[in-house]
Simulated assay, not measured.
Amino acid sequence: MKYKRVKYIRWAVLLLLLAGVGMCAKMPGAGEWYAREVYPYVSVMLSGVASVVPFSLCEVTVLGFVLSLIALPFWMRKHQAPWGKICVREVEILLWVYVWFYWAWGMNYFRDDFFTRSETERVAYEEVRFRQFIGQFVDSLNAAYIQDASLSEKEIQSGIKAIYRQVPERFGLTLPKDFQHPKRSLVNGLYSKVGVLGYMGPFFDESHVNHELLPVQYPFTYAHELSHLLGVSNEAEANFWAYQVCVRSENKFVRYCGYFGLLPYIYRDAYRMLDKADFKEWANRIRPDILRELREKEVYWNERYSPLMGAVQDALYDWYLKGNHIPSGKKNYGEVVGMILSLPENWWQ
């Protein structure tokens, strides 16, 4: 009788949590309420637990769930449980994983979009403004160029966190904590093969960075992943914050990394928007040292990349993003330029 009571309570809690996920997904404002009023406390608690161990607690948790789903049918059949009961238990485990993912971090996908929170409107493409922006961008990129600086990862992390603490409150980002440090994946080589430079571990609110990153990639990638930990789910917005935070650094190398991290998106948009002659003229303004570093980066990662595994990962992640209120899927990464152009010059104040 006691076991049945516990089972009913367990399922009642599970159904309530599922209802909460559905409410945040469908009810306007509910996702933003979660991001501002619930997530800051949840993230501090979970990332605080994760900070105790040097490895990725999220990856260990996922592995534990997978092994449980595989082993449970054998264990229950050994104890003569019917297949119907086994299926119900497997479904229950999957539902707990689902609610853990969303209540721990995933409901940030349901918050108000960047333009609503920034109190701006998405601007239509204007050729004059775009040309002005990419011209200024190249000037700033060239001026910031510096070869590898002697900064430790801890110094980079500390400086970037300090700038994130200055982000205007209307954007609704949580404040980074000193104990929140990026983890290294237990299967880092696999992420390199599929072109993943970092990712957000949702079950314990852990950011992860690929430990094969080139020095010029580390500040931008770390700032991108940290923004996810601070409540940003949109990949374009994560690129936006990585750029904005890095270029505001007092350290010239970190500033250069901010411009360098945004360069591929600017380069792609310029190639699409300008005619061939204008694009060539613009591209020729970029310092040869920077273009060489960009090519070396591409060669470096191509040597580690598996086309087959990368294609599978791209398809799965595209499907995942589209299923979480990001209709453009993986193309969302490149929408960062539109965000930059939509804001007035004094938006940070």
Rank of each mutant, 00 (worst) to 15 (best):
S342G: 11
E345H: 04
M27C: 11
V337G: 02
V53N: 01
W83A: 12
N284G: 02
R36F: 00
L94W: 00
G31P: 00
A270R: 04
W347T: 09
Q80V: 02
Y320W: 13
K177C: 13
L173D: 03
P82M: 08
D289I: 01
P28T: 07
K322C: 07
D139M: 03
V245S: 11
A223N: 10
I160K: 09
E293F: 02
Q136Y: 09
A283N: 12
L18R: 01
D278N: 04
R122F: 13
I286T: 03
W33E: 00
S150G: 11
I70M: 13
G189W: 02
P219E: 00
G84W: 06
A315W: 13
H79R: 15
W83E: 15
P344Q: 06
G22S: 05
W348G: 03
W348L: 12
L63M: 13
K331E: 15
D289Q: 12
V123Y: 11
V60F: 12
F203D: 10
G323H: 04
D112R: 02
E293M: 09
S185M: 06
H211N: 12
L186A: 10
H211E: 15
Q80P: 08
V13D: 03
I86N: 05
E281R: 15
I163M: 02
A104R: 02
F110M: 06
R36N: 14
L69N: 09
L186S: 08
F110K: 10
A315L: 15
F260D: 05
Y34L: 05
G22K: 02
S152I: 05
L57Q: 01
V62L: 15
G84V: 05
V128H: 12
L15D: 03
Y305N: 05
